[in-house]
Design a protein around this nucleic acid. Structure first.
Length: 592
RNA sequence: GGCCCGGUAGCUCAGCAACCAGAGCAACUCUCUGUCGAAGAGAAGGUCGGGGGUGCGAAUCCCCUCCGGGCCGCCA
């Protein structure tokens, strides 16, 4: 028998009364009555109340928060009226016969039962933070989800295969973390942004069904749902099409939601086209849990007296609007903020109408004809108290601006209590029919919407040369509640098509394509099977089932917004000797 | 790189030009045999993030700067 414990701290119940037990754990709370001392003893599983008689055990007065102790004693019923219904062990207590202090503790830098504590303090003392009940629950949930995923893919005949962390730089995508090579002075590895190319090579190798709980690295700016290192459920299959991917991933989600939070997901999931998502919600990952859909008024304003709208239409653009129901109460300051937001996204301004006191209050409404007004009233269902926002621009720009404003006004309405989004709704769906390539105005070049290995939809292949932006990719995103949870595609498996995409469509010089991706094209030439895959974000999945929006809450040791580890102090300076070995010279730290 | 919010005791926060900057909790000392965020008493704890400016007077107003968080850009 283990000498530290016979039971854990959430185990003892009424039937155990009279038993001699040993418990070990941390002092969660102490209530010293002088002639009687209560201690809530906590371990990973829960809390049990210990009662000390200080006459028998005088050291019980000296216990403090987070001391580690071993207690031997007898399970006793709590006296009439002192049962604690908040604890599963609340009907019993342990009368201590022996106390052994295994370790003392410094006074914790912040109270562990406090909900709202500065996150940098929590990150600095992460080992204490993880002792808190919600954090233990999150770690446990992550373990459970990961196990469900492994079991699921195992049952489906997948092999879990590890791929290298030290990879080659492929600067097309996200900024990479570079690792200098000592044995090849002056040369660098890159940490993978994802195991994309290796999993395709595994398909060429004939693995057929691969998955991996894979760590990925991206040296980009952080967000609440973005860490520099994060985990993907990386999946790839051979001899399949898009439908097979949907089926496998939907099955995985159903198992996770059932096993983690006992929630029954309805599958198959709905699918919406990229074009429709943009038209109706102004986003390729729309949050459909609330209405406020975009409406198109391009035809209404084609020959309008309001030249801003008519002009936008004349130059090939569109006019779109949303109705923020009940938001006419916004202040001018808030309108200015919304305008500012629209401008940062490239809009020249923001046209709006407040419906207040039975009148349309707006600087532009005087330009509108009666026909235009009635079209707006009818199609936007305008009523007293509404706020209408317009965008007139190129199709994609107008959609994106209103899509972002839609999220902002929904947030404002939520804060005012005028919009309620239930917590337990999971609106899952697939977004499909993305354009294969997009024109990037910044570089004035075509670039892959997803990545350059994505296969075009078969019947669109003839358009590759003539109208490349019309070509749809066999790409799919999994979206839930406005969050992109996964993205993937059917890949190009013919070397000549892959070469054509690199050289003719993306205009990557032949030599560059060869040096960066030559091994992949070469591999495709040796009998690559048709294949495709997807990569759901594990951190986001776990955050969803834990009910948090911040993935730092479901990562044991996350980085802060500057990608620093506040506990260990990484990143840090290194010894000059280390740099010499790597033949690296630095300019030192950037002066602050 | 841009915008927004925040920084006052160990923690959470109040104070937002005028007694000497406060409260709750924690820590410390003491009292107490049925508490469960124990209670009561006492004593202690502050470069008001830092620097500069305006004022008779600044935690409070202005400027600069540092730190934390959120968002935009960025994330093939």
């Amino acid at each position: 028998m283990n000498s530290y414990r016979t039971h854990h701290c959430a185990q003892l119940r009424k039937p155990d009364i009279g038993q001699r037990v040993v418990l070990s754990g941390w002092v969660d709370a102490r209530r010293d009555h002088g002639g009687l001392v209560f201690v809530d003893l906590r371990d990973r599983e829960g809390v049990t109340q210990i009662v000390f008689d200080p006459q028998q055990i005088p050291e019980s007065h000296d216990l403090r928060s987070e001391y580690v102790i071993r207690v031997e004693g007898e399970v006793a019923p709590r006296p009439e009226g002192t049962v604690n219904p908040k604890l599963v062990t609340g009907e019993i207590e342990v009368k201590a016969a022996q106390l052994c202090a295994l370790n003392k503790s410094e006074t914790p830098p912040y109270p562990l039962d406090e909900e709202n504590v500065n996150e940098d303090l929590r990150l600095q003392y992460r080992y204490l933070d993880l002792r808190r009940r919600p954090m233990i629950a999150n770690l446990r949930m992550r373990h459970r989800v990961t196990k469900i995923i492994r079991d699921y893919f195992d049952e489906q005949g997948f092999l879990e295969i590890e791929t290298p962390m030290l990879f080659k730089s492929t600067p097309e995508g996200a900024r990479e973390y570079l690792v200098p090579s000592r044995t090849n002075p002056g040369l660098f590895y890159a940490l993978p942004q994802s195991p994309q190319q290796f999993k395709q090579l595994l398909m060429v190798a004939g693995v057929e069904k691969y998955f991996q709980i894979a760590r990925c690295f991206r040296d980009e700016d952080l967000r609440a749902d973005r860490q520099p290192e994060f985990t993907q459920v990386d999946v790839e299959m051979s001899f399949i099409g898009r439908e097979d991917i949907y089926r496998v991933i939907e099955g995985m989600l159903k198992c996770i939601w059932k096993g983690a939070i006992n929630h029954d997901l309805q599958i198959p999931l709905p699918r919406i086209a990229y074009q429709d998502a943009m038209n109706d919600f102004g986003a390729d990952k729309p949050d459909r849990r609330f209405g406020i859909q975009l409406k198109d008024f391009t035809d209404t304003f084609r020959s309008s007296g309001f030249k801003v709208f008519a002009g936008a239409v004349a130059s090939g653009g569109v006019v779109k609007a949303i109705n923020a129901k009940g938001l006419a109460c916004v202040t001018q300051g808030q309108i200015d903020l919304l305008t500012e937001q629209a401008k940062t996204m490239g809009a020249k301004g923001l046209a709006w109408i407040k419906v207040e006191g039975g009148a349309w209050k707006s600087p532009i409404v005087k330009f509108f004809s009666e026909a235009e007004k009635s079209a707006l009233t009818e199609r936007l269902v305008i009523e007293e108290g509404d706020l209408i926002l317009f965008a007139a621009d190129k199709w994609s720009a107008a959609c994106e601006v209103l899509g972002k404003l839609r999220l902002t006004v929904a947030e404002m309405l939520q804060k005012m209590g005028k919009l309620n989004i239930p917590k337990d709704v999971f609106d899952f769906f697939w977004v499909v029919d993305f354009p294969l390539i997009t024109f990037d105005p910044e570089t004035q070049k075509y670039k892959a919407t997803h990545h350059p290995f994505t296969a075009p939809v078969d019947e669109d292949i003839p358009l590759l040369d003539r109208e490349p932006t019309k070509v749809r990719g066999q790409h799919y995103d999994l979206v839930v509640n406005g969050i992109e949870l996964a993205g993937g595609s059917i890949r190009i498996h013919q070397a000549d098509v892959q070469r054509k995409v690199f050289e003719d469509v993306l205009k990557i010089p032949k030599e560059t394509a060869e040096s960066r991706f030559g091994y992949l094209i070469k591999a495709l030439g040796y009998g690559a099977p048709p294949h495709g895959g997807i990569a759901p974000g594990l951190d986001r999945i776990v955050a969803l089932v834990c009910g948090t929006e911040n993935i730092r809450e479901v990562i044991a040791f996350p980085k802060n917004a500057r990608a620093q580890d506040l506990m260990t102090g990484a990143p840090a300076e290194v010894e000059p000797r280390q740099l010499r070995e790597l033949r690296i010279q630095t300019e030192g730290r950037r002066p602050q």
